[in-house]
């Protein structure tokens, strides 16, 4: 196993770790808004590590650009969706 392959394997393990953290947070956290924290932050970090691993494995500039676009889009969508779902959940609880 070359050095690059070792790094890729490490990144993949990190990616899985943060995905699992997101799931565990979604299941364990006590209230809706705390769960939203887990969903917004952990998952997208996991995707980030996986995207970097895939980019290293491919070693192609255009593909790396597309991977970056996928990740940027999910990051942006996660941040915006988090606010919207947080507001909707507040409303469902009948305000504060």
């Amino acid at each position: 196993m070359s050095v690059v392959e070792g790094i890729i394997a490490g990144l993949l393990v990190l990616g899985v770790f943060f995905y699992v953290a997101g799931t565990v947070g979604l299941l364990r956290f006590p209230d809706t808004h705390s769960r939203l924290h887990a969903l917004t932050k952990a998952d997208n970090l996991g995707l980030g590590f996986i995207v970097i691993a895939a980019g290293l494995h491919w070693g192609d500039g255009w593909i790396a650009g597309k991977l970056a676009l996928v990740w940027l889009l999910t990051l942006f969508a996660a941040g915006m969706a988090a606010q919207l779902v947080a507001r909707a959940a507040l409303k469902a609880e009948g305000g504060e």
């Binding site: 917004t40 941040g79 606010q83 959940a89």
Partner: peptide
């Protein structure tokens, strides 16, 4: 919402 510990609800 992506920073440690905080989440905006508008």
């Amino acid at each position: 919402s992506l920073l440690p510990g905080t989440l905006s609800a508008g």
